[in-house]
Design a protein around this nucleic acid. Structure first.
Length: 107
DNA sequence: CCAATGACTAATC
DNA sequence: CGATTAGCCATTG
């Protein structure tokens, strides 16, 4: 049941706890928000908050290591730059060894 | 309220 | 490994 907090709100709140140099997936994010199978909705929620200078939405990638998308300024290109800036290696549109940097949430 | 939509995912070919 | 298909969901018009 709902805690009173909207799904998208929880998504954004959870994003802020992702450490620098780490990434998470839309699926894990959705699970952290209370809906394990709402990965798609999670992506939609993050996508509606493009300008989030303080929200590290660029640290969210797909479950297979591919970048997914980015609605912020500069588009996907910016997402790549930001991730590389945190020490991650992007190649062929995906994060290499992303499982090593994968951040998992705790209930 | 119903139908469409999207920064998804896992399974199949 | 790339392309396709079907499933799942909150949000929007």
């Amino acid at each position: 049941m709902n805690t009173g907090l909207k799904f998208s709100s929880v998504i954004l709140a959870r994003l802020e706890e992702i450490p620098r140099g780490r990434v998470t997936t839309y699926g894990l994010l959705a699970r952290a928000a209370g809906r394990a199978e709402a990965a798609r909705a999670a992506g939609a929620a993050v996508g509606r908050n493009p300008d989030a200078p303080r929200v590290p939405c660029h640290r969210v990638i797909r479950s297979d290591g591919r970048l997914g998308g980015y609605s912020g300024q500069g588009g996907i290109k910016t997402k790549i730059r930001l991730l590389r800036r945190e020490g991650l290696v992007i190649k062929g549109g995906r994060v290499e060894n992303f499982k090593k940097f994968l951040y998992t949430f705790n209930d």
